[in-house]
Design a protein around this nucleic acid. Structure first.
Lengths: 248, 248
DNA sequence: CGACGCCTTGATCAACTTCAAATTTTGTGG
DNA sequence: CCACAAAATTTGAAGTTGATCAAGGCGTCG
């Protein structure tokens, strides 16, 4: 064992906090060198938030940024009369918080229990000054979110209720384990949202969501284990439901 | 007049091409110093595209980036069965093209006659290496587009047909002259889209768009001059229609 | 003029919402 | 662990909104 220099010898420089962290590699922290990582980790706090905790309030300027370490965060917009729209879901190791920009235009709420790794705005801004890599990572994440938002605009504007619900299930199923390929093996999908949230994500009512889930169950696309768990026997088939071609 | 040193004396260093350009200040070129500006302008071509010209094709990787100098560009997504959704409109001096990323996930088409100032991908990437400012500007534009996309998700998911059409008119009216404040003076709005495009932007059918325009006309919110021109006597009132509170 | 593209209007229809229970699940305290 | 209350979900019936189908008008261009 000894006598053999491990590739990871430099891990000794990496804060313990960060060693097992996804954000360290796939998230924004991947842009940092060990020195910066140490500095950042000094002002870092980890926190577990319960479901329903408000993480960012629309109209306020958050003073801290975070990496999502675990759990799922929902981003919402609210109208004066109470109508609501969920405009995005964030999974680990997504970055949470709006770079530069003053107040956030969306609220962020823990959809499940969420683990965050947070740090002051100022420290991140410092590191953005030092290395281009950091802004580049943030920019990449913003581009990804923009793609997702536009994809969802298509869902909201042009898909039927059935397609919407299938699209939601497909989205969640494919984000649980991003490595997984679309094969024929059944997947147990843990739903991060309750029906009313799913409705707010899809621009539907809870009743319609419920009915469409029932339809998908009856047509064998899914099995409903309980309110928060659905089994998808065949993901490829479910994907077909996200964009039905009703021609011919 | 002479004998008085003008602030703009350095304009002599700025390519003639760029001197009257909006993008030079408000667009991404604002991040460049005169030297870079000269270099960029050397590989720059201006081009006028007719309405309906396809500027970027979804699924292809564009080799050139552009600044929108004039006119309006629509970004669209298409489903296999022909359903379409417009996911964004771009006005001068917006940047057009997807940094880094491989293929574009949206198509871009000239909604009106459009003037573009284009340059090879490689040159922009060079300048991103040299100065942080450039990536920062691009990042800012991406953030702006993300905000707009999410705002529109609320419109698509949660607003009534009437509110959607009012939202569209309000969006266009407020983008014609971004300087203008919301006062009571009538505005003549040049619609950049025909009815079927408005429908694709709002997730409606042309018939519904037409009917809602008629409704807004009958209720005095707008005057319809012709298919492509609408007068808004009172923008503030129109804004109220974008989010009606039907309570009480 | 006549054809075509675009828009409007009317009538009917279907999808989704709303309203109203009934049922199941979840959480809490004894 | 059970009982019970509260919350969430499902289901049914009726109502609305917006879609679809169909016809006609208007403007432009050859």
């Amino acid at each position: 064992m000894s006598g053999h220099e491990r590739k990871d010898v430099h891990n000794s420089d990496v804060p313990i906090l960060c060693q097992a962290c996804e954000a360290r590699h796939k998230g924004i922290c991947g842009a940092l060198d060990p020195d910066q990582l140490v500095r950042l980790s000094k002002s870092t706090t980890k926190h577990v938030h319960a479901r329903e905790d408000e993480l960012i309030t629309a109209g306020e300027e958050p003073q801290r940024y975070s990496n999502v370490m675990g759990g799922i965060v929902k981003l919402t917009k609210l109208m004066a009369d109470g109508r609501q729209q969920i405009v995005g879901l964030q999974f680990a190791p997504d970055f949470l918080g709006r770079p530069f920009a003053g107040e956030s235009k969306v609220s962020a709420e823990a959809a499940t229990e969420v683990r965050l790794c947070s740090f002051p705005k100022t420290v991140l801004e410092e590191m953005m000054q030092e290395s281009q890599g950091m802004e580049h990572r943030l920019h990449s994440q913003t581009l990804k979110e923009l793609d997702e938002a536009r994809e969802w605009m298509l869902t909201l504007g042009r898909k039927s209720a059935q397609e919407k619900v299938a699209s939601f299930l497909y989205l969640v199923a494919t984000h649980i384990d991003p490595e997984r390929e679309i094969d024929d093996k059944p997947i147990v999908v843990e739903l991060p949202l309750k029906r009313s949230d799913i409705a707010d994500f899809l621009g539907l009512t809870i009743e319609t969501v419920s009915r469409q889930l029932t339809n998908l169950r009856k047509s064998g696309m899914i099995e409903i284990e309980n309110n928060r768990q659905v089994t998808v026997p065949n993901l490829a088939k479910l994907r077909n439901c996200t964009e039905q071609n009703l021609d011919t």
